[in-house]
Design a protein around this nucleic acid. Structure first.
Length: 503
RNA sequence: GCCCCCAUCGUCUAGGGGACCAGGACGCAGCCCUUUCAAGGCUAAAACGCCAGUUCGAAUCUGGCUGGGGGCACCA
């Protein structure tokens, strides 16, 4: 097991039927890591044989999501490659050809049972509490008979002729050997009546033709794994290494993600859809780190990983087969962690679109000054709007009530602010060096705590009770604006005092 | 109903018979730092699902039970 793998050929093979979520992202990531680590190829294959479920926008979202995560493929529908086409809808004839090979060898057969009959059959089986398997009506039709009916244009599908006796042992990399009795495996449909192959056939054929060496896929495929092995063996092909990845459970750990659950998450400001995460202000470095660690670990203490780290350290041997609950709280932690690892210039570039989206006029130079004082306070990029919006607004929206210092009266607050103004006014510029000591002395003289004074000033200057460090803020805002904001605050306090004396 | 998989703190996990009265991380609580909020540092509470068996010894191996998950489509 493990050690140094020879170059692998791996694939991520989604069907464009819906939005791209974290589970897909992780499967794609693991495949990608293995390819990069071994110097092999990562292939994107679009499994779009189901015309009815096809969602046109899905493929674009898929491509955007993977690119955003930093995953790029060596072969795929958009970049081509030596084993194309990479879209199953362009490979219909190939699957048909292989299905016929199976029929010729009596390993598959034509079936003329109608969907209605099948439905009734299943209902009956349900009633009798029997396993839900095809009853084999068409299994023993003679080749001539079947062929004649096919030529006559009778609607038909092609089914796999699963052995009735004995059992099959398949090998999953994480779980070891799994043995199943053949009689519990259905005669699955390989080709539908419209001529399109189903996953079971198409994926096996493609994996073979595309020389896939390792199949890392969701564990929802575990139950059809024996069938897949039968198909591969029926063709006499070499089996790739199969690795079935654990599923993601909802945050509570009780049950899998559902539509309902996913809607609730969005209410809470989270989402399982990768595209949404970008909008919410999460950065791809954090997403990658986080999902990599759900089902895989490196050792008993390392948790911070860049994509490069993962490429070097990822190993199939440390994969965990048990289901994992998605933990968004930890995701927030990882996002903050990775944000703090970004260079100021990089962070500025990433934060800027969020500020602009909030309607702020962003000055690049000023933004770069702000980054150092907000970076350890950001959980998401979007937090910058709350945290630093006041730097880019001409008018502050402040609640005059908040200008009253903690445990202070209106007149005391006014008095303190006016005194502070007198200290700030003559300064060349306002920052920790020029102003802090003087204001602390003032607080002493007024017999209030420095925190009380700074609190009033913070509201006056930033408009909010929570902000980056006061003096850094004042320095960036500039003396002129600081003074005018303090003047405005003094005005508010005077109005309040007047109101009080009148009453 | 049938088949398959899984099982360590609330969550993600380390652990592969003695190094484990079980380690790390998030979260939670407390403390330190501190002009607010963070970040950072320190401390605490917190888990081997249950029952048998194998063994001198079991979180680790075996069986059963329970719980959870997946599948049983002319979806992937």
């Amino acid at each position: 097991m493990g050690d140094k793998l020879a170059p692998v050929r791996v694939r991520f093979a989604p069907s464009p039927t819906g939005r791209t979520h974290l589970g897909s992202g992780r499967t794609a990531l693991y495949n990608y890591l293995l390819a990069r680590q071994t110097g092999g190829q990562f292939i994107l294959r679009i499994e779009d044989t189901d015309v009815k479920r096809y969602v046109p926008e899905a493929e674009q979202e898929l491509v955007d999501s993977l690119h955003w995560l930093g995953l790029h493929w060596d072969e795929g529908p958009d970049v081509g490659g030596p084993y194309g086409p990479y879209r199953q809808s362009e490979r219909k004839e190939i699957y048909l050809e292989y299905a016929r090979k199976l029929i010729d060898q009596d390993k598959a057969y034509y079936c003329f049972c109608t969907p209605e009959r099948l439905k009734a059959m299943r209902a009956e089986q349900m009633r009798l509490k029997q396993p839900l398997l095809y009853d084999g009506t068409c299994r023993n039709l003679t080749q001539e008979d079947a062929l004649r009916r096919v030529r006559n244009g009778e609607a038909h599908v092609i089914r796999f002729k699963t052995p009735r006796e004995g059992n099959i042992t398949v090998h999953d990399y994480l779980r070891g050997d799994i043995t199943v009795e053949n009689r519990t495996i259905d005669d699955y449909i390989l080709v539908k009546s419209d001529g399109w192959a189903l996953y079971h056939l198409a994926a096996m054929v493609d994996d073979h033709l595309m020389k896939i060496t390792h199949v890392l896929r969701s564990s929802e495929w575990l139950s059809t794994f024996p069938l897949h092995a039968h198909i591969i063996r029926a063709f006499g092909w070499q089996e790739p290494t199969f690795v079935h990845l654990s599923v993601f459970l909802k945050p509570s750990g009780k049950g899998k993600m559902s539509k309902r659950e996913s809607d609730r998450l969005i209410q809470d400001g989270y989402s399982i859809f990768i595209k949404d995460l970008e909008q919410l202000g999460y950065i791809p470095e954090a997403v990658v780190n986080w999902i990599a660690l759900m089902g895989w670990s490196y050792d008993d203490h390392t948790e911070f990983f860049t994509m490069q780290d993962l490429i070097e350290k990822f190993s199939l041997d440390h994969l965990n087969p048990s289901p994992a609950a998605i933990n968004f709280t930890k995701f927030d932690y990882f996002n903050g962690l990775h944000i703090r690892h970004l260079s100021p210039v990089d962070l500025a570039h990433r934060v800027k679109p969020f500020l602009i989206r909030a309607g702020l006029k962003v000055d690049d130079e000023k933004l770069l000054l702000i980054i150092p004082i907000i970076r350890e306070r950001l959980v998401t990029l979007d937090d910058a709007v709350q945290m630093a919006g006041f730097f880019f607004r001409d008018e502050l929206q402040i609640n005059p009530q908040e200008l009253i210092g903690k445990n202070m009266s209106v007149s005391e607050s006014l008095n303190a602010l006016e005194a502070a103004y007198k200290i700030l006014q003559p300064l060349e510029c306002i920052n920790a060096q020029t102003a802090e000591e003087k204001l602390r002395i003032l607080a002493d003289e007024l017999n209030i705590k420095a925190g009380q004074l700074f609190g009033i000033l913070r509201i006056a200057v930033t408009g909010q009770s929570v902000s980056p460090p006061l003096f850094e803020c004042m320095d960036i805002i500039g003396k002129e604006t600081v003074l005018s904001r303090v003047e405005q605050a003094i005005k508010y306090l005077r109005e309040m005092e007047d109101g009080l004396t009148k009453a």
